[in-house]
Write a protein that binds this DNA or RNA. Structure first.
Length: 243
DNA sequence: ATGGTCGTAACACGA
């Protein structure tokens, strides 16, 4: 976790809720105090070197869940907390490595388990947001070079179908509520000067129920921290609601 | 050209 970057970003963007993925820290090493000092309640579940998710909130939260039922609990990729009546579900969906690999099969299984979890949660929560690193570019507008990426991991039809099933549960892609343009990305490879050349993918998303969609004021991607020194390869997605 | 970068960790691996 790049704590100085989180602190610097929050100073400019004092959001009510922040979801982090790939913290890559065991819980004993999570910088809870530094974030509490900024006025946040924190929840986190992590492991050494890989995965790890965290959730920050200015308001108190209840009913935390630290594992997605039905998948390997050793991989820390899931964290749900209810804040101000909104069920916030933070996910780090598996990357999948390459189409046809064991990791790809695991990704599709994980997405199936996520759909089942959400179908149940949605019976109890009118206002729900599913957000994080999905490792899926929903359609070709979300890919800098669709021909080069065709059928590869992050864009393959089964992955996009799984994303579609999440939408069919009644969830809307907040970014697409107000923007149908191609060429807006949230992740750029470290190689080949990909960020400078805007060779990216939009794989980080905020999906919301209709009750939240009605309160959505705007949704955008902040490319600023991707240009910082030693950055994350992702850029934050920001959604604003009037609740 | 089946490459390239990054971080952690270890001389490889996952992203």
């Amino acid at each position: 976790m790049r704590l100085p970057h989180v602190q610097e970003w929050l100073a400019e963007n004092p959001v009510d809720v922040l979801c982090l993925q790939e913290t890559k820290l065991v819980d004993e090493k999570f910088p809870a105090l530094a974030l509490q000092e900024l006025g946040y309640h924190v929840w986190y579940t992590g492991q050494k070197t890989y995965n790890g998710v965290a959730l920050l909130s200015r308001l108190e939260g209840v009913d935390p869940v630290y594992d997605l039922p039905g998948v390997d609990a050793a991989q820390k990729r899931f964290l749900a907390v209810t804040i101000n009546g909104v069920r916030v579900v933070n996910v780090y969906i598996p990357n999948g490595s390459s189409v046809g690999s064991d990791k790809y099969d695991y990704k599709l299984q994980w997405l199936e388990a996520l759909q089942e979890f959400l179908a149940d949660e949605l019976t109890r929560h009118d206002k729900l947001a599913l957000l994080g690193d999905y490792n899926i570019a929903p359609d070709d507008r979300d890919v800098h070079d669709p021909a080069a990426w065709a059928d590869g991991v992050l864009v393959s039809e089964p992955e996009r179908a799984a994303f579609g099933k999440l939408q069919q549960l009644g969830l809307s892609d907040a970014f697409r509520v107000g923007n149908d343009e191609a060429g807006w990305f949230s992740w750029w490879d470290y190689r080949q000067g990909a960020f400078r050349r805007n060779m990216g993918l939009r794989i980080d998303h905020i999906l919301v129920t209709d009750a939240l969609r009605g309160a959505l004021q705007n949704c955008h991607i902040d490319k600023t921290p991707r240009a910082w020194e030693r950055p994350s390869d992702h850029a934050p997605v920001i959604a604003e609601f009037s609740l």
